[in-house]
Design a protein around this nucleic acid. Structure first.
Ligand SMILES: [Mn+2]
Ligand SMILES: [Mn+2]
Ligand SMILES: [Zn+2]
Ligand SMILES: [Zn+2]
Lengths: 137, 137
DNA sequence: TACTAGTTTAGAATAATTATAAACTAGCAA
DNA sequence: TTGCTAGTTTATAATTATTCTAAACTAGTA
């Protein structure tokens, strides 16, 4: 759970002015216990609930991109037409349920890779993501 | 390397009429030594080179979808805005180089998973894809 | 050869995202 | 405190990838 102060610091530390909109979006994203997996659309819905000042969709996109560049969120692999983002920025894996289009975290240590191939010449591994797609049993 | 006959059989066996367009696309896709990773756009370019009868982009999309449904190609995980497809339909993994946006196959046996988590209740694993993103060393 | 269901096509429609440019505001300085 | 300005937000237009539509075409069969 992140206080407003912390959120403002987080924004300042990444050279993002703590505007009303960014603070509200950051609260929605980071002021929660569990990891949040979202798209621009779901974030927009979450943020533009009754009782809040309305935030334009443009700002949703701008802010998601800014938070991503700043490393506060990461984009997840899917083969959906929409981009999916994750408030869990640690390297980790996912279950993907195509029927609900929902992602679930798998902790990095829940997966043990006994053997992986060497990266091609001149390249090193930046990240390693496993997606386990599910189906009805 | 697939002969025209084989290609026609492949189409027939999946209830796809072997039209001029489908045969040409299938040749481009399957009549080659290595795995082919492509998007609708790259396939369209490959197929609509000089010397060939022109195939509409609509047909490219229709055919890719039909081949995918028939199991002749599979869609790959990326976080690109375009859909990526693969002529390698065996379960396998990929290196992804964000700078070139190119995928490279990793044979299934090049990766050994020593431990994976149990799928949630009522679900089983349909597929398991690992993507290793690369960066300059 | 003629029929018909399936296919192709150009073009329109849709969906997600990005660009534009005018109005607004956070942070700083006079 | 006020004014300035660079950064930000917003509505709206533009772009990009993909899907839809419906008319023209054709593979397979009778
Ligand atoms: Mn994708
Ligand atoms: Mn994606
Ligand atoms: Zn996650
Ligand atoms: Zn592959």
């Amino acid at each position: 759970m992140q206080q407003k102060k912390e959120i403002i610091n987080k924004l300042r530390s990444s050279n993002l002015r703590p505007t009303k909109q960014r603070i509200l979006i950051a609260k929605k994203l980071f002021d929660r216990k569990e990891t949040f997996h979202f798209t621009a659309e779901t974030l927009n819905k979450a943020v533009n609930k009754k009782g809040h000042a309305r935030i334009s969709l443009g700002t949703i996109y701008n802010t998601v991109e800014a938070f991503k560049r700043a490393g506060h969120i990461r984009e997840i692999l899917t083969n959906n037409s929409k981009s999916y983002y994750d408030t869990n920025i640690k390297s980790h894996h996912h279950f993907y349920d195509p029927s609900s289009k929902k992602l679930t975290d798998i902790d990095y240590h829940e997966v043990v890779l006994k053997k992986i191939p060497n990266p091609p010449k001149g390249k090193k591994i930046k990240d390693l993501e496993l997606v386990i797609s599910l189906q009805k049993k």
